[in-house]
């Protein structure tokens, strides 16, 4: 029996108009994410990770190609997709003047819950991310880790089928990072497919069943962490068991002399 992928992207392209002509941030990304897993999307700064996520989450138009998320076409039914996905982007996108409880209740109302249902769901989520004690404090007083956990909770308000996490632990201290990892595992165990972008290879190794590495707007490696390590070991003798760092460097090393963070520029 074949299962419908939670995410199916085919030849996704994103082109911007820049001052010096056209900039292609994503140059034909195709990927398939099976439901129920944690999919890691790795790449150096400016490789096209966030742009790909923004296209998949309806936040950015797709220049060409097609994306199906939770069985719904992103371009033709963006609201349908928004009802099925949760999104926590690079910056913990929070309204700092609200309390944690107000933010979650508002999120529930925006997903068409009644005020009573939104309040109940907010209480559940505050407990899940261990923020009940801070629920009625303004978010601007929260620590970085607390903000991240609240951001995660707000992405879960409507019980999404697919959760997109764009660098969820960037800027967190190691203890807070482990707490977020635990949350991600817990969310996944509850049945939510997780699409995670990260620059931390240890994070990807710890959490992900499947990985894709993107560089310069193109997928350059794809597979399970172990399969990618085995493939490198079979090809290159490092004199030790390869790590995911080795896989990443091998995949992206050919562009090491390029300035980190640059995207490929194509003059029109």
């Amino acid at each position: 029996m074949t299962t419908t992928p939670a995410i199916q992207a085919t030849e996704l392209v994103k082109t911007y108009s820049g001052k010096d002509g056209e900039v292609q941030a994503v140059r034909g990304v195709s990927l398939s994410v099976e439901p129920g897993g944690i999919f890691g999307f790795l790449g150096p700064n400016g490789a096209g990770k966030s742009t790909t996520v923004r296209m998949l989450t309806t936040l950015m138009t797709i220049t060409s190609g097609r994306a199906i998320v939770a069985g719904i076409d992103v371009a033709s039914d963006p609201d349908g997709v928004r009802n099925k996905i949760g999104v926590a982007l690079q910056e913990a996108g929070l309204d700092l003047r609200q309390t944690g409880r107000e933010l979650l209740q508002l999120q529930g109302r925006l997903f068409a819950m009644s005020a009573a249902d939104a309040a109940t769901r907010a209480d559940e989520l505050l407990e899940l991310v261990e923020l009940t004690d801070a629920a009625d404090r303004r978010i601007q007083g929260y620590s970085g880790g607390m903000k991240r956990r609240l951001d995660l909770a707000s992405a879960l308000v409507h019980r999404p089928e697919v959760l997109f996490l764009d660098e969820p632990t960037t800027g967190l201290d190691p203890a807070s990072r482990i707490v977020v990892w635990d949350e991600v595992r817990r969310i996944n165990e509850a049945g939510t497919t997780v699409f995670l972008t990260t620059q931390y290879l240890e994070e990807a190794d710890q959490l992900c069943d499947q990985l894709a590495i993107i560089d310069a707007g193109l997928i350059i490696r794809e597979g399970s962490p172990q399969a990618l390590k085995d493939e490198l070991a079979a090809r290159v003798d490092l004199g030790r068991e390869p790590s995911l760092d080795d896989v990443f460097l091998d995949a992206t090393g050919r562009t090491r002399d390029r300035v980190a963070g640059q995207v490929q520029e194509v003059r029109s």
Binding site: T58, L59, N83, L89, E91, D95, Q107, L110, S154
Partner: peptide
């Protein structure tokens, strides 16, 4: 402020 802080995108990701 919300555009710069990311909350604007959070709102745009809701089906409103």
């Amino acid at each position: 402020e919300e555009i710069e802080g990311g909350y604007f995108d959070k709102l745009r990701a809701t089906p409103i």
